[in-house]
Nucleic acid binder design. Structure first.
Lengths: 200, 200
DNA sequence: GCCAAATTACACAGATCTGTGTACCTATTT
DNA sequence: AAATAGGTACACAGATCTGTGTAATTTGGC
């Protein structure tokens, strides 16, 4: 309730730093010493807040699990807007793919990691599905899965290629899929580049 | 020239084992001792064939870089067939995502790894593009990128969800995209489940 | 200013990992 | 039978990593 952004807790500082390093360099690649040194605290302090590196990893993934906030935009705008914000994130030089996919890739069959990763993917698919239901799409379930594929596909491609255009490609494909499902894409909901093209 | 599959070289045995372990458990997660022990050779022998673990990693990735072999099937069958074989691979319990994406995810900004990963992704996109050109698709470049997104998206989703149905979803989306580009999908090129449904 | 809690410095245990050095062994070839 | 190549056993160096123990010190609340 106190909106003062004043002092971040020590625990928060540790978590924020661990998040950044884990995400950018990989979980196995970053040791607890490195994290402590980065903040300028002693390793002992870190272990006073997190009992083990595993606990830190769990907290890292939990922190990354943010539900999409409700929006007053139209469902179509929200769906297609997803790809616009993806493109923005791809353009940032500190983007390194999906933290959940990366964690599963490097931590393998770790139960808890897989579990939270699945939950995250499913929560985003359900977000898509809800919007599609609002649009009256009959096969909302199947289409939401396909949209999720496009999201993760563009993320994986950008991870290796470092090419934000992958988000546009995904958006274009998503537009086709939506139209095919009977969704009307209004002029204003379409992206600006295409709109400019149309007018010229 | 000798088609005898008789004796695999020691180097091949090392590489084959490293491949399996790196892929299934992650590159950082597998030590050279583990690889040597798995084969039942001494660590010294391993280092007599590969000067360093890095060299072994490079060889592993190079080995995974297989170009799709030419086929006499129709372009549409080849494109859609890609998703069928993906589904088959997803169903195998030793499937653990794309080795190149995984390697980039866990090894981070390693130059050489990124390079080979980009080359692999691009080679597959060009394979798609070539087939689309054969089909007379105007926007073969854009569409090939979108198909590649679907491939990588289904791989990423299957990696976390362990659900081969992701391949079907990708195939369905790909079919829509192809039709939208003016490609005729014949009865026989469509998947069997849909065909059965149609007849009933 | 005092007290309790948080933080620090730092050494250290124990595991694991990459890579090397060396002496010995065991095939195959000539 | 001798020589050569390849493999083995095994110890070890040196780095790195997780996690702990402890005593001293700083910090914030009262």
């Amino acid at each position: 309730m106190a909106p003062l952004p004043a002092k971040p807790t020590m625990k928060d500082r540790i978590l924020e730093t661990a998040d950044r390093l884990f995400y950018l360099q990989g979980i196995r690649a970053v040791g607890v010493d490195t994290i402590a040194a980065e903040i300028g605290i002693s390793k002992r302090t870190l272990y006073n807040h997190f009992p083990s590196k595993d606990a830190l990893i769990s907290a890292y993934l939990a922190r990354r699990f943010v539900a999409p906030r409700p929006s007053d935009k139209s469902p179509v705008e929200q769906i297609l807007g997803t790809f616009d914000s993806l493109e923005r994130r791809f353009s940032a030089k500190d983007f390194r793919g999906c933290p959940f996919v990366n964690a599963v890739a490097e931590l393998g069959d770790d139960r808890s990691v897989r579990k939270v990763a699945v939950a995250f993917k499913e929560s985003r698919r359900l977000w898509f599905r809800d919007l599609l239901v609002q649009l009256g799409v009959a096969e909302a379930d199947a289409l939401s899965t396909q949209l999720a594929l496009l999201v993760d596909g563009s993320i994986a491609q950008d991870l290796v290629r470092n090419d934000p255009a992958m988000a546009r490609a995904a958006k274009d494909a998503a537009t086709v899929l939506l139209k095919n499902a009977g969704v009307k894409i209004g002029r204003n909901t379409a992206d600006k580049r295409a709109a400019r093209k149309r007018k010229s």
